Simulated assay, not measured.
Amino acid sequence: MQEQSAGRGPRHVAIIMDGNGRWAQKRGRPRLFGHHAGARRVKEIVTACPDFGVEYVTIFAFSTENWKRTQTEVAGLMSLFRRYIIKEMQEFVRENVRVRFIGDRPRLDAKLRQLMDDAEAMTQACTGTNLTIALNYGGRDEVSRATQRLAHDVAEGRLRPEDVNEETLPKYLDTCVLPDPDLVIRTSGEARISNFLLWQSAYAEYEFIDTLWPDFTPEIFGELLRGYGARDRRFGAVTA
């Protein structure tokens, strides 16, 4: 891992998009109204990434813990995800956005899984912004699944136990083809990471802001990116 000097923007930004429900409730609307507003904001932020030099953006859409929400809200979110993929994928192709999904897919319904597969295939040749959507994702769940795959390879003789180290495990993570995030942003005033990219964010910078996700504009995004550029990232070293 190399030291990154001040003044350089983040290559990979991860976002915990929090506050959709509260945004809707403040307006006297159901929580799903806020989720729809938040989905529209995603597209705006993703299409602004090239202007800011951001190559990768990863968004936390639905966690492994979100199944605890009401059946109505969960069903509404799943319907929103299906409609979002159908509606936006052609636009992402035009915008040259590569789409990937991370998370535990088997619990998702078959139609949604097929749409996810189709979106990844449809945008596979895109060379612009890399959008990764974390859907039914949890950091501990991801590490557990990765460890199972690694243990299977050890049992089958494809990997020696003494070769397992901090460089080996990431090859089994959902994010194996992605660089680690440089900056993690959480909206809505909460100051916790909520089981998001636990392994990958070990050296990330964090920004916790009060803005609710549907109010998060490209202008706010740009301000946070400029603030990141002013930081001195030493990764345990000492600046000379």
Rank of each mutant, 00 (worst) to 15 (best):
112 L>E: 03
229 G>F: 05
195 N>H: 10
169 L>D: 10
85 I>C: 09
137 Y>H: 11
234 R>V: 00
73 E>L: 15
63 S>L: 11
171 K>A: 14
95 E>C: 09
95 E>L: 12
15 I>L: 12
156 E>F: 05
55 E>T: 08
121 A>S: 12
233 R>A: 01
218 P>A: 10
64 T>F: 03
14 A>D: 01
188 S>C: 10
111 K>D: 13
196 F>T: 10
53 G>N: 09
213 W>G: 02
141 D>I: 05
185 I>K: 01
179 P>Q: 07
229 G>L: 05
57 V>C: 08
105 R>S: 11
172 Y>G: 08
231 R>C: 04
159 L>P: 03
62 F>T: 00
34 G>N: 11
58 T>A: 02
51 D>S: 14
220 I>D: 15
91 E>I: 07
198 L>T: 13
153 D>E: 13
158 R>V: 07
162 E>L: 03
107 R>V: 13
87 K>I: 07
135 L>Q: 04
120 E>D: 13
148 Q>F: 06
206 Y>L: 11
112 L>I: 05
34 G>I: 05
181 P>E: 07
3 E>A: 13
6 A>S: 12
159 L>N: 09
176 C>Y: 12
96 N>V: 10
149 R>I: 04
114 Q>N: 14
52 F>W: 12
170 P>H: 09
139 G>T: 04
199 W>L: 07
145 R>G: 08
87 K>N: 15
6 A>W: 04
209 I>V: 15
167 E>N: 14
113 R>M: 08
239 T>M: 06
230 A>F: 12
200 Q>W: 02
22 R>H: 11
202 A>M: 06
123 T>E: 05
124 Q>G: 12
205 E>Q: 11
209 I>L: 14
45 I>P: 00
55 E>M: 04
110 A>H: 07
